[in-house]
């Protein structure tokens, strides 16, 4: 865990109540089920990239982030950028649920003229704080939001940035990492979805990114590690780092996750990075997800 955690940050005051945990588990389930429903419309999509991040999405949007329902452009909101933009199919149902756009939009996911495509588009989708699709930009985008906030001093918000673990192979990530540490971008909180896989196979077989925690620490960041599917732990940690006003550096959370979490055969077969479930198989996947006690 962090080498610089304060006593306050170690306290349990951030632990979510069982009621909250139950709600967040249900929201993570909602994200997975909606992902299956939307990909059925598109006939192709990134199920597993969402499934590894579902608990984190739920914790951020339904608990940790400072947001206002129905006000996606509220100036005081916490921002979220995502490098693994192909997981947007799991974010769109949340944005609709939060009243950022009409739920009917979801039913036309990826159809001609839909604002909702495989990647999140800030020009088209209320709730998307920055567009994504080209991997490696998101941490810089988030840093810019923190630097602007510092200059204007108008709003007190945090900027969360989720990146994939394969994304660690992009050079720009490390440019942004050095730059953020230099600027002591304390309101920048990165989350790495460490699910272990990228398109061509295991991340560490293709281009090993370990020791990841030591890398980030060496780059001047506060580093935390968490089980990304333990929604109680994820929520507690995110609440803690969000509230920590003594930290004087950016912070990264390495979330150990399982790609395809919730659907057994997806968890063991990396080829599911991109795919499609026939409705008969989708039914079985839905049953597994409903049985999951994340």
């Amino acid at each position: 865990m962090s080498g610089s955690s304060t006593d306050k940050a170690r306290s349990n005051s951030f632990e979510p109540t069982p009621d909250v945990v139950a709600i967040l588990k249900e929201r993570a389930r909602f994200v997975r089920l909606e992902t299956i429903r939307l990909i059925e419309i598109a006939k192709t999509g990134h199920y597993t990239s969402v499934f590894s991040a579902a608990e984190i999405f739920a914790a951020l949007y339904y608990d940790v982030m400072q947001l206002r329902r129905g006000e996606p452009k509220w100036a005081g909101r916490d921002r979220f950028t995502i490098g693994k933009g192909h997981a947007a199919v799991g974010l769109f149902p949340i944005y609709a649920d939060l009243g950022f756009f009409p739920k009917e939009w979801l039913d036309r996911y990826t159809r001609l003229g839909s604002p909702l495509g495989d990647h999140p588009d800030m020009r088209k989708v209320p709730g998307v704080d920055f567009s994504s699709g080209s991997i490696g930009h998101a941490l810089s985008n988030a840093l810019g939001m923190v630097l602007a906030q510092r200059w204007t001093g108008e709003e007190d918000y945090r900027v969360f940035c989720m990146m994939g673990d394969g994304e660690m192979q992009e050079g720009q990530v490390w440019e942004a990492a050095i730059n953020a540490a230099q600027h002591r971008a304390r309101n920048l909180i990165a989350i790495i979805d460490r699910n272990g896989y990228q398109l061509d196979g295991r991340v560490d077989d293709l281009m090993n990114i370990e020791p990841l925690d030591e890398k980030w620490r060496a780059f001047g960041w506060e580093v935390h590690t968490v089980d990304g599917h333990d929604v109680a732990k994820v929520t507690e940690l995110l609440r803690r780092v969000r509230a920590d006003d003594e930290r004087d550096k950016p912070c990264v959370i390495i979330a150990k996750t399982s790609k395809g979490r919730g659907v057994s055969y997806m968890e063991t077969e990396p080829g599911w990075h991109l795919g499609y479930l026939d409705p008969s198989d989708a039914e079985k996947a839905v049953a597994e997800i409903n049985a999951l006690d994340a």
């Binding site: 921002r79 950028t81 800030m122 704080d129 920055f130 490696g136 930009h137 810089s140 985008n141 988030a142 840093l143 810019g144 939001m145 923190v146 630097l147 602007a148 906030q149 200059w151 204007t152 050079g171 720009q172 440019e175 942004a176 050095i178 730059n179 230099q182 600027h183």
Partner: peptide, 28 residues
């Protein structure tokens, strides 16, 4: 000095960071 940002030698990061700045109503 408060309006100037040094980006080191990180041109791609500079461009993407400028985009993030611009989302907050500041013109970089």
């Amino acid at each position: 000095p408060d309006r100037y940002i040094s980006f080191g030698i990180s041109e791609q990061n500079m461009v993407s960071t400028a985009a993030g700045i611009a989302t907050c109503g500041v013109v970089p």
